[in-house]
Write a protein that binds this DNA or RNA. Sequence first.
DNA 1: CAAACATAATGAATGGTGTTCAGTAAATAA
DNA 2: TTATTTACTGAACACCATTCATTATGTTTG
Lengths: 202, 202
Amino acid sequence: MGISERKEREKVEKKQMIMAAALKMFLEEGYAKTSIRNIADAIEYSPGTIYLYYKDKDELLYDVQGQAYIQLLEVFKKKATSKDPLKRLRQIGKTYISFGLTNPELYDLMFIIRAPTNVNEQTHKDHGKKSFDYLIDCLNECMAKNLVRIQDATLGSLQMWATVHGLVSLNLRCRLKMLPEGVGIEKILYASLEDYIDLITV
Amino acid sequence: MGISERKEREKVEKKQMIMAAALKMFLEEGYAKTSIRNIADAIEYSPGTIYLYYKDKDELLYDVQGQAYIQLLEVFKKKATSKDPLKRLRQIGKTYISFGLTNPELYDLMFIIRAPTNVNEQTHKDHGKKSFDYLIDCLNECMAKNLVRIQDATLGSLQMWATVHGLVSLNLRCRLKMLPEGVGIEKILYASLEDYIDLITV
DNA sequence: CAAACATAATGAATGGTGTTCAGTAAATAA
DNA sequence: TTATTTACTGAACACCATTCATTATGTTTG
């Protein structure tokens, strides 16, 4: 009997439909301003239905975060492909900043906001590791070729990630207003990254 | 007639009383979980009264943020006082990380969370600038003595701030779970800072 | 085919939230 | 003493996340 299979498929599809609607609304209006009722309205179901597929609003966020991590990794794999590991390191950094600048709401969901009750550490452990490993691998290659002044790839990756995340998140939260005006903030962020990579190169 | 003066004083005192209660509860329970009603209960006034002193919950946050910036600057002035600018730079970085680790909720209020409706850019422009200038001055002194490989003090300060903020905020949001376990996260943060300063020193 | 069962969806109800505002009480001025 | 200003109240409004008894639909069994 293929009925239970079909039902299973429909269930998965409906869950994806809910997630897609939620993601769209999170990006357009922000997580906080998107209510379960709004999502229910958008997909033309009652609020209660959403709770048949997601335990609570947090759970919905975790799913969206996982999706976002996949997106980020895909962008890395598309944009940071130079054979030269040092060039690739620059590409990774640029791609990350560009990702944060062009998808501010998505970036927010992934790295900045806090779910009302908890954080799903597993989401970040699992998905986050893949992107982080992409950086570690690149840095390891740089180290093997003696291109960078870094002893530990993990520590070096953490430092570079902290730098770009710091830049992006401070900008997203309008905490860079004390910088001299006139010059475009985006230019400054990229320049700061370039400087950082110049610092670590031999 | 000193009556209006007294009234003015009482008004200021009451506002401070509200802010103190709010700050206490923000730190204990977090901004989101603290309701105007809770604050009103704590100070034994009705919810409506709070709106006589603060336009909305956002405004209350801005006031708390201003207070927090003052605190941060005071810690800098107390803990980062070495005559040697390079040592002072290390002290500033350490102090910042320590501030974020020991006051996670306060750090959250200042640099991570978003007020429901807006961000008061002026708060960060004004208060933030003072702390940021403390860093710029230090870096300028390092540059004058040819101690660091940095061309632009503002850009250099931004980079260093991004690094420490990145470290602290990623940790606060449990985004460092992919790091090898066992080693204390705090140690790693401080080590990462040390590495960074080693990088920029001549 | 009809009855029994399983699944899916509903939507009102609960207990919260920020915010407003007509009404009241107290302090001051006339 | 009366009038006026000021401070405060707390019920009311429109929302929120979440729950759950009820209903509707689809599937299986006798």
